[in-house]
Design a protein around this nucleic acid. Sequence first.
RNA 1: CGGGGCGUAGCGCAGCCUGGUUAGCGCGCCUGCCUUGGGAGCAGGAGGUCGGAGGUUCGAAUCCUCUCGCCCCGACCA
Length: 580
Amino acid sequence: MRYSQMLLPTLKENPSEAEVVSHRLLLRAGYIRKLTSGVYSYLPLGLATLRRVERIVREEMNRAGAQEVLLPVVQPADLWIESGRWVKYGPELLRFTDRHNRESCLGPTHEEVITDLVRMNVHSYRDLPLNLYQIQTKFRDEIRPRFGLMRGREFIMKDGYSFDEQEEGANLTYQKMYDAYHRIFSRCGLAFRAVEADTGTIGGSFSHEFMVLADTGEDTLAICRSGQAPTDGQTCGYAANMEKAAGRPPQMLASRPELLPLTKVETPGKRKVAAVTEFLGISAQELVKTMIFLADGKPVAVLLRGDHEAQDVKLKNLLGAVDVVLADDQQIFDATGVPSGYLGPVGLKIPVVADREIEVMTNFVIGGGEKNYHCRNANLERDFSVGKIGDIRQVTAEDHCPSCGGELEFTKGIEVGHIFKLGTSYSEALKATYLDSSGKEQFFVMGCYGIGVSRVVAAAIEQNHDQDGIIFPLPLAPFQVVILNLSPDDQGITGAAEELYSTLKNRGVDVLLDDRDERPGVKFKDADLIGIPFRVTVGKGFLRDATVEIRERRSGVVQTLHPEEALSWLLAQCEMMSVS
RNA sequence: CGGGGCGUAGCGCAGCCUGGUUAGCGCGCCUGCCUUGGGAGCAGGAGGUCGGAGGUUCGAAUCCUCUCGCCCCGACCA
């Protein structure tokens, strides 16, 4: 491709609307343009990168035995009513009526459609397992689209769905997809990590998220420091997102201290954990705080050790609630009759749940249940009881890996893939069944597997950039090589640039020739900005001693070579990529 | 939806508080000259419903009301 003929509008300045680096660079480098909030057009460069990701995804999905289909964007309400999600999905589902007044929606995901397709066409265990996927535009009317391609309303997703007999089959398919995802993100040239994830409202037994590691990521991951396994010296490999990550369960002390009598103490004006502990001369580990949450609107008291933080999703799961929010001061008083800051579990009339750490504590401090008072030497069971106990807190750096006891470290990541074992929830809702070998009707055991294809592009940039622009990994770059003709007026230089260009092109390399009538500085800046891995400069060095320059975008390493040498070096680099 | 901010030329901004001539600046764009290894220089030029509607006023980018759009922080997600 010739730069002079390409729609590639680069920007010198940062667009004011873009805050995060991938968004900024995608706009500046002429990859995308916004049409409206959360909806973007892909320009040639953006599309080329998208296609690279898609191609890798296709190859690996096919290799793993999945078949590609293409499902409708517009879906009838009936199906969604049948699955129950017409009501459950909420305003994120963009609904409309057609001219016949039929209710419809834009597909935010395709469990309904695929399940319908399969129930109509697959009836026998002989046709199983079946694994179908598509790469397609999704629309979710997000509450708040942001960060450019990172969270658009319209985005491109690979979604796959598997249908198996029984659990074992489904587990096998899940493992295949897990492996395929590893191959996909490795081939993309990204640093990533698979983490255990919460299964969310979909339920199901397990789920993994694939996270591209980047400091700018929105999610936090807890990862076991490798090589810390105490016994066998193997890398442990434990990794989970914060919604799921757990520490080791607390250990009951071998000799439990004597239980001291509960005593009320005056703590005037001391409401915060820090103030109370300082006033009483204790550590936060010796205090149990009582927080009030509204679970689906109903107040619940939640007990946590003073230095711990609640984890909403874990709490949600323990309570079986759809939604939990922290109550405000007024709601706290309404629910308990006690002003916030002095709340304790004794004598509460609302349900009480506790973090499992509370179980091993003795003689701790709690709120006194009235203004300006706390109690010392409180003890679970003796002084109060709780409804449910479980892990409902955020893990901290002090926690240890639940599988090997090693240290946990925290990293930021961007979720680019998510795989779920769905079980039979959709097949039951939509009555999708097959006959097993004994002629008995069975529900399909399903799994679903998503990859945010357009988000991968954004995540790749978040992970790979510098002050000058994008640094795409070779497998994702829209062009592998950019040739700068620094003197389009000079016949010798132009001849050499053109020859390199056509030879590379004929050899299957995706190459961009900057043949514009621009000053060298402009070409250098643009080449850096758009992030092409290899830059070949044909300029005065060619006139001097018939050499060209190859510069690697990432390392900045420059080699001065004769064109034939440059050619074979570049071919070798690009060859290596297509083999992987 | 709650909280914060912004809409003035393709992009980035000033002007608004304290109304008053043809509404400015930088970048980009067009023409010419010149220049050619890290976003050059000079000269000339095109490009604006000041987001929209209503109001106040002799007069509104500027003041008031309503409205639309966009961005950022929270709950959702690939």
